[in-house]
Design a protein around this nucleic acid. Sequence first.
RNA 1: GGUUCGGUAGUUCAGUUUGGUUAGAAUACAUGCCUGUCACGCAUGGGGUCGCGGGUUCGAGCCCCGUCCGGACCGCCA
Length: 585
Amino acid sequence: MYRTHTCGELTLKNKDITTTLCGWVQRIRDKGGMIWIDLRDRYGITQLVFEEGKCELALIEMVKKLGREFVIQVTGTVIERFSKNPNMPTGEIEIQVRTLNILNQSETPPFTIEDNSDGGEELRMKYRYLDLRRNPVKKALELRHKIAAETRKYLDSIDFIEIETPYLIKSTPEGARDFVVPSRMNVGEFYALPQSPQTFKQLLMVAGYDRYFQIVRCFRDEDLRADRQPEFTQIDCEMSFVEQDDILKTFEGLIVHLFKEVKNVDIAEMPRMKYADAMRFYGSDKPDIRFGMKFVELNDVAKGMNFKVFDDAELVVGICVPGYSEYTRKQIDELTEFVKRPQVGATGLVFAKINLDGSIKSSVDKFYDTAALQKWVDAFGAKSGDLLLILAGAKEKTQKALSELRLEMGNRLGYRNNNVFAPLWVIDFPLLEWDEETNRFYAKHHPFTAPKPEHISLLETDPGSVYANAYDMVINGVEVGGGSIRIYDRLLQQKMFRILGFSDEEAENQFGFLMNAFRFGAPPHGGIAFGFDRLSSLFGGSESIRDYIAFPKNNSGRDVMIDSPSKIADEQLKELSISLTTLPK
RNA sequence: GGUUCGGUAGUUCAGUUUGGUUAGAAUACAUGCCUGUCACGCAUGGGGUCGCGGGUUCGAGCCCCGUCCGGACCGCCA
């Protein structure tokens, strides 16, 4: 037996017992006649003590050979510390070591294995197995495990069944770019890795498994972000014989359960906001509702005063920042620079300060007198001491830019507290989205989403105004999940593919298996998928999902530890009947 | 595909604005001292292809061009 206890469990209750521990040398404090070692394992840290005169000289000599991250086994007596450390669970005891066994040596690690490591991102990824020894990363993975475990517990308790679906499937052109896998046995043909198990879970509904879920890896060959990895995990769910409201209630239940069990946070309410309102009041389909500063449209009160920027704009819209009329010229200039960055894309920023004495100072005083400005103030319901920030231009672009500005102000004002959680449903999404470049409609959610029944007749006449029974769950401005009621009628699905520009042949070729299944008694159904990595990072209070994934990929989709992707041998290519050529750009 | 920031000791960074003697700090590492430390302390020491290639110059870590690598973001992500 290697050990009798872990490094996290011994306390004064275990005083005087003999124990054997295994772990890594976290730190050595050599005080001359006395040496302490912090011994670390997954469960915590226990202090070892070696004291001249109280242990054999040979033992001291051996201790002097130890270095950071050596793996050792020690046997000794649990004793009460002379000077205790109240900051650690095992801080009242230490182990007076009798025997030391070096299980393995370690080179000096390239960075410190501490909560605040001196290692940079890339180095820590290259030696991820060392990074994973660090407490914050371990905590993140424990949190992730807890969420997975509680998800399974909750869904199991309400009769959901976890079923695995295949990873080697068929490529489809819609949506994200597929990762493809060549087939050796079928020359010239490729599998694709699933972007989601969408069609399979629908087939499970046809098969009668009316409550399915799966914590499942998904793959999308698109550029990465701090919150986007090419392979990521979803909590994928589908139910039969349900309407939208049944699904919202069921998965509100899941989220409430997770917050309670994992974070001990009570979610009081889960508001439902129409997509149109989300865009109108927050300029985003994933609003952060931890704070106000809702958009106020100013077209009526701002236009027609010979200020060309506003007169020419499709939309004049602003936010009221409470209590910030004291913002200096320099700070406002910073905000102007912020909105003018290409990523935000506004051309300028108009402000109005409502001073404490009631006077109003704006950047457009030349065009707007006090009475005109007062109309703005009334529109916002602003008070003395408030600051109005206003953008103008094309509708969508301006909404997006003001949304960025609102979030920036939320950050500056400290409204975006990681320990406050404000979930909501965004509902009533448009079914379709017009794409100017390709001159066709795309499915806003996916092509299996059902139009609202009362809008089906509009599909022929005015597809752009059709709404869907689709919904997203948004928490703190992060889209953590989304789903829809699906089409289960073969002819409606066929019509949908036609609207999306599929020929009947293409639809048959790519989704014939699903359309065929709909011939054999498909029940009404719908579902949702949650981004498990995002949910984990959100619970952990981090913007990046990378620390919640044991072995993540970097910005370029590379794993710098195993150095993948990589070239493969000519023999492998030959076996796959693949020859590589460099295509002209 | 684009924008932007960065690459200097094992590591994290300063030094680049204004080119000029031997490139610094902290930390890590090594050695010595220290019997209650817990980010122990003190002393000493070793440690550099300034990402790579080219150019300008009497002279380049610093300026210019190219290139590679990394971070954040836009496009993209049904």
